[in-house]
Each structure stands twice: as structure tokens, then as C-alpha cells.
């Protein structure tokens, strides 16, 4: 088992690198999460893994350690209420403020293995088929190269493809390859994957009409959450919207956003400017 000093070292690195706040009661969980990486690196346990970082001249092992601690859990159309709010409130509201042939830009921030951006692509495709969508560019980012590799491939197990997808959506947008299911080219082409750390400036990527950043901020302390929210606000159009995870808040630590009345959905305040 990790010592408290080793755990404190990991916690410091996780906060500094990706803003992940690890409370002391997570020691056993972190220890277990790092076991597979420790084995791959030829270490007997997570503690030895931390010791190994001291003997390395580069930072790659710390990258791998923090990467292993990032929560990868996601599924298609996760949280049905949120997707209803997106389809019935957020996207129509944004489209009303745009020229009829405007291009919508959406950012899936912290996309893990890609289920969220692909759900977005499917939703926008369906809205277009109903005559109420718009041409959409979806940028999907994650800090973890491991998760991003899987997302970029767009290939999902039979288990993954049955969580959150109706059978009609599944056979309309995926093709079976052996025991796996690959998202069709038309859906795949709507999403651009990039590596990005939410702790750094998203300068060149914006502005976006809508940002989804769900179940990421809940792992941060208030200081990092505020800074991240304001970076996201800075990447939004003046009337852009932000979708957080169910129960996550944007208005308690910053005045960049207002509530919309929908759980997890926030509107950027047009007057808001980042402090210089």
C-alpha cells in the first residue's frame, strides 16, 4: 500500500498536471488504480512506481501515473435529461441567434473514449434530418492520450454500444466488424479529436457556441474549478452555452455564467470579461 507521503506526492502531481484533487480518503483507490501500470513498468506495487519516478530524468512516468488516475467512465447519451435539454433547449436557443446557414461549433471537453462527441454528432445528424439542425463542427479533447486513442478509432465493444444507444440509433450509425461496432464515417467525420489539458489556455480553439464539460470539474478543488470555468467561458461565444454534468455548478465560484433553469446547463454572461 502507498505511504501517506507517496500519496501526497501523487496528489500534488495530479493537481498540478490536470487539476485532479485527490482527497486523503482516496489512498486505497489510487493504490488499486495504479497496480496495472506498476506491473507494466516492472514495479511490484504503486509505491515502487512512485520511487521509480525519482530515478527518471524525464516526466513521462508521471504523465502515465496521472493518466491512469483520470476517470474514464462514460457512455452514449449519458444522462438522458441532459440530452433532452440539449436537443430541446440549448441547440434551438443557439440556432435562433444565428444566421440560417451558420455553422455551429461545439466542444466536447474531457471526451474520454468518445461516446459524448459521437452522441453529439448523432444528435445533430438527427436534428438535421428533421430539418432543424445546422452544419456542425465538433471538437473533442481529452488530456489522456490513452483515452483519446480509443476515441479516435471510433470502435466500441458490444457492451459499450448497448449502453445509452437505442437499437435504431445503433444500426443507423454503426457497422459491425466482427465482435466490435464502428461508428459510420459520416458520424466520425463530424468530430475532430485533439489532445488538450483543461488546465491550459484553449486559445486557438474557440469561439464555440456550446461546450460540454461533464463530470470533469467535480474532480477539481474550487480554485481550479473557477479558473477552468473562466477559461471555458473565454472560449465561448458571448451568447454561448455550457453543459456540465448532472448536479455540477458553474455559478457558485464565478460570475461568468447564469443559470438556464435546466440542470447542468448554463449561459455565458455577455457582459462578462476575464480579469486581466
Amino acid at each position: 500500500m502507498l505511504t501517506e507521503a507517496q500519496f501526497a506526492l501523487i496528489a500534488r502531481q495530479a493537481k498540478r498536471r490536470v487539476g485532479l484533487a485527490l482527497k486523503p480518503d482516496r489512498l486505497a483507490v489510487v493504490d488499486a488504480r495504479l497496480a496495472p501500470l506498476a506491473r507494466r513498468e516492472g514495479c511490484a506495487c504503486a509505491g515502487e512506481l512512485v520511487q521509480a519516478t525519482q530515478e527518471r530524468s524525464d516526466d513521462l512516468l508521471w504523465d502515465a501515473i496521472v493518466d491512469a488516475l483520470v476517470d474514464p467512465s462514460t457512455h452514449f447519451f449519458r444522462d438522458r435529461a441532459a440530452w433532452r435539454a440539449l436537443a430541446e433547449r440549448a441547440i434551438p436557443d443557439i440556432l435562433r441567434g444565428r444566421a440560417p446557414n451558420a455553422r455551429l461549433r461545439i466542444w466536447s471537453a474531457g471526451c474520454a473514449t468518445g461516446q459524448e462527441p459521437f452522441s453529439l454528432a448523432i444528435l445533430m445528424d438527427e436534428l438535421r434530418e428533421e430539418g432543424q439542425g445546422a452544419t456542425t463542427e465538433i471538437v473533442a479533447t481529452d488530456v489522456s492520450a490513452r483515452l483519446l486513442d480509443k476515441a479516435t478509432a471510433g470502435i466500441f465493444s458490444q457492451f459499450e454500444v448497448q449502453r445509452g444507444l437505442s437499437v435504431r440509433r445503433m444500426i443507423a450509425r454503426f457497422e459491425r466488424i466482427g465482435e466490435m461496432w464502428r461508428v459510420m464515417d459520416r458520424v466520425r467525420a463530424a468530430v475532430r479529436f485533439e489532445a488538450h489539458n483543461l488546465m491550459s489556455e484553449p486559445a486557438a480553439m474557440g469561439p464555440f457556441d456550446l461546450i460540454l464539460c461533464r463530470n470533469v470539474l467535480c474532480g477539481m478543488d474550487d480554485e481550479d474549478r473557477k479558473a477552468t470555468l473562466e477559461r471555458l467561458a473565454g472560449a465561448l461565444a458571448e451568447d454561448g452555452m455550457l453543459m456540465l454534468g448532472a448536479g455540477e455548478h458553474a455559478v457558485d465560484v464565478t460570475d461568468a455564467f447564469s443559470r438556464t433553469g435546466e440542470d447542468g446547463l448554463f449561459l455565458r454572461n455577455a457582459y462578462w470579461r476575464r480579469a486581466a
Binding site: 438522458r80 448497448q162 449502453r163 437499437v167
Partner: peptide, 20 residues
């Protein structure tokens, strides 16, 4: 058929498909 589950399944899949 209204929905379709491919075996093997678990509680999550059954729950997801019944919700769909």
C-alpha cells in the same frame, strides 16, 4: 420488436434498453 439486446448482457444494459 421495440428494443434489442445482444447477449451477453448485464444489469446496466437491461436498464439502459428498458429505458430506451
Amino acid at each position: 420488436a421495440d428494443e434489442y439486446i445482444m447477449k451477453p448482457f448485464d444489469g446496466d444494459i437491461l436498464h439502459s434498453k428498458f429505458a430506451e
